[in-house]
Amino acid sequence: METRILIVEEQDQGVRLDKYLSTAMDDCSRSRAQQLIDEEAVRIDDLPVKNSYKVKAGDEIEVTLPEEEALEAQPQEMALNVVYEDHDVIVINKPKGLVVHPGPGNPDHTLVNGLLWHCHDLSGINGVLRPGIVHRIDKDTSGLIVACKNDNAHQSLAKQLAEKTAGRQYYALVHGAINHEYGTIDAPIGRDEKDRQKMAVTEKNSRPAITHFKVVERFDNYTLVSCRLETGRTHQIRVHMQYIGFPIVGDPKYSLRKTLPTQGQMLHAYQLSFTHPSTGERMTFEAPLPPEFEALLTQLRQERSGL
């Protein structure tokens, strides 16, 4: 069991208890907050309260979180597009639609399950649900991801990511015509207060996020850009491009514009570079655009040419 104590600040005076909890605790959705309240796991002055209770400045809220059932990722046979592999690391070209590691709603058939079958062993630094995983890409983002087979390799890659010496570049097709050639988006990202399933540019409970981009090709109402990550926040490129007014084509969360016929967002991790943890060799890998992405670009080129 875990107990958390929350002190309501003046600015949150009058907010419903379930909404307050979902905002104050990063790992708690509003529905989860309501469940905890219904189970009398939320107390004020040692008394249970209702969802509709309006919090008061100075309230001391005690939240008791039950122990979660222990889970462990299991090996599952699946076809993996292995770009490179040795005794330390494995680089995969992940297809769109494949979740990286198990979690709520995706208990199995993830990349981690396939890696455990293929490699038989992965580094244990990130626990039993995310073994070997040092960075992630979204379910509907295709492209390169590296996993580590031992803790030494994991520590080396994690350090490179933290020190920004590992490189990650993406192609993104976005709505709108970007007139300038280059740009840097330096805007902190945190959980969206209105929708816990989304991230947003915000100063509240956020972390620094920096994305560099350059224009690769222009179409009538769309732009193909190459994005280089300096940080690795959840949904970073998707949030940043939407923030500056150029959301990614096909993005179901961050693009409300009428879009081209696509099966998911047009975002692909095409280049990955890092220093090998054992040999010290600088390694760079590239993955071609998936067929559906390339086909969409071909269509736009034909429309631009009037064909």
Rank of each mutant, 00 (worst) to 15 (best):
I137E: 01
R136M: 07
E85D: 09
D45Q: 12
M199F: 13
S226H: 03
L144Y: 11
G264P: 02
D12I: 01
V216N: 02
A33F: 14
V146S: 04
D18I: 08
A177I: 14
R218D: 05
L122V: 08
D46V: 00
I210R: 09
T275C: 09
T3R: 12
N113S: 07
R238E: 06
P95K: 12
F274C: 03
K258Q: 13
P290D: 00
D251H: 04
L98F: 08
M199R: 15
V225M: 06
M1F: 12
E68C: 03
A172H: 08
T184F: 00
A73M: 04
N152Y: 08
G103I: 04
K253F: 10
L71W: 07
S142K: 02
H175P: 15
E60K: 13
L36P: 05
I61H: 01
G245Y: 14
T184R: 11
T279M: 08
V91Q: 05
P66D: 01
Y222L: 07
P291F: 00
P277C: 02
G245A: 10
Y222K: 13
A200V: 01
T234W: 04
R130T: 09
S273Y: 07
A158Y: 00
F213H: 09
S156W: 09
A166N: 02
T284L: 10
I178M: 11
H154G: 04
V146L: 12
R218P: 12
I237L: 12
L47M: 10
Q169V: 00
D195H: 14
E303H: 07
T231M: 07
E62W: 00
D46L: 10
L296S: 06
V100D: 08
G97V: 05
I189W: 05
S206C: 06
V82L: 05
T3W: 02
N152M: 08
D46G: 09
L6K: 04
H120G: 14
E281T: 08
K214F: 02
K194V: 05
E60F: 00
K204Q: 14
G58F: 06
L256H: 15
P75K: 10
E39K: 14
A162Y: 04
G280C: 09
G124L: 10
D46E: 13
V63E: 01
E2N: 13
A153M: 03
